[in-house]
Design a protein around this nucleic acid. Structure first.
Lengths: 184, 184
DNA sequence: TGATCATATGGACAAATGTCCCAAATTAAC
DNA sequence: GTTAATTTGGGACATTTGTCCATATGATCA
């Protein structure tokens, strides 16, 4: 449910400890917007601790939550690599501690460090697989199924988010979510 | 609508022309299954010409089409990189010509050739962006909207697929698709 | 020439979901 | 401690979508 990746965090920890240039440690409070959909992204973030939501909006009023990311996950790498404006917004839903790279440093390291390169390839492959699978399941299965999966996942890890956000993650209205919750 | 990628095709053309070991040229007829969901993937394919559909099934009877891929697109790279069984099935929907790599050769080249590495990173970044965007739009917008977008795209490029497949791409039943088509 | 299969179209009804409300409960602000 | 704002839970109804048909059209094959 909340994606994590300890391999990458270890690599970055190592780089930071070795005094690699271009890495900053930053902290952000819950609610802080790290990346705004449609804007240019100039930094790449690696989550040290905390949770963010990646969400996509079209109308201002409706949002769809693409994923929740936790420890070791990377933010802004897609935009850094492809040069396009941010695909989604990224907002902290708990207090956050991150490593922050400027774009050039990140791309440089990605070329020079084979281990980082491999870890990022792997992370992107996993994300693609997960995203595709979730997208497909949401189309194929009834809402009830996605919901019970979600609730089961939430028993193990608590997610500091509202019910509206859960609905936005499931791609339905809050009303529908409540209905399902009631008559289970 | 149909994803393509000429940069990669040029790189692979070059490698093949230079006699790089581990590359085969293969042709498959329309309808041929290149990758079966859930099975181990031992080859990586680069499309020289033709179109495939990547689809995800859960019940045997229902399928969701993740994307249509054309020239220069890569198949099986996710599984090669991450080692997981195939996330989706890939089937030719027109006659197909491909470059075929065994997994080891592909991973080797990915390490040794900076240009290929960069091109694959870029391709995966673009796919992630596209997949996320499509998934979000399908949840946020009414079917009518997705449909008109799709029809507009199809005016420029013709896709050799059935209406059932279009419905599977949109994530709805054929009945719903027909209804929308009728009262536009 | 049929017979058979895939594909395409649409009627009728059921089920799921959204929209528009309002009220209770909880949390944050002063 | 009181007020305001957010979050939650749900009724009533409209709309959308799915399910289960039946029929028509066209292609293929014996």
């Amino acid at each position: 449910m909340i994606r994590k990746n300890s391999t990458i965090l270890r690599i970055i920890d190592g780089l930071a400890a070795a005094g690699q240039a271009g890495i900053l440690v930053r902290k952000f409070p819950k609610g802080h917007l790290l990346i705004g959909q449609g804007t240019a992204v100039t930094s790449v973030f690696f989550i040290r601790s905390g949770i963010v939501k990646c969400s996509f909006a079209e109308d201002e009023d409706k949002e769809y939550i693409l994923e929740f990311l936790g420890e070791g996950q990377v933010l802004g790498e897609i935009e850094a690599i492809s040069g396009i404006p941010a695909v989604s917004s990224v907002r902290a839903i708990s207090d956050l501690s991150v490593y922050m790279f400027d774009r050039e440093s990140f791309l440089n390291l990605l070329q020079r460090r084979e281990d980082l390169n491999g870890a990022i390839l792997l992370l992107m492959a996993n994300r693609l697989a997960d995203t595709a699978q979730r997208s497909a399941r949401q189309q194929l299965r009834p809402l009830e199924h996605s919901l019970s999966q979600l609730l089961q996942a939430l028993e193990h890890e608590k997610l500091p988010c509202t019910k509206q956000e859960l609905a936005n993650y499931l791609g339905v209205t809050l009303r529908s979510l409540n209905r399902l919750m009631k008559d289970r």
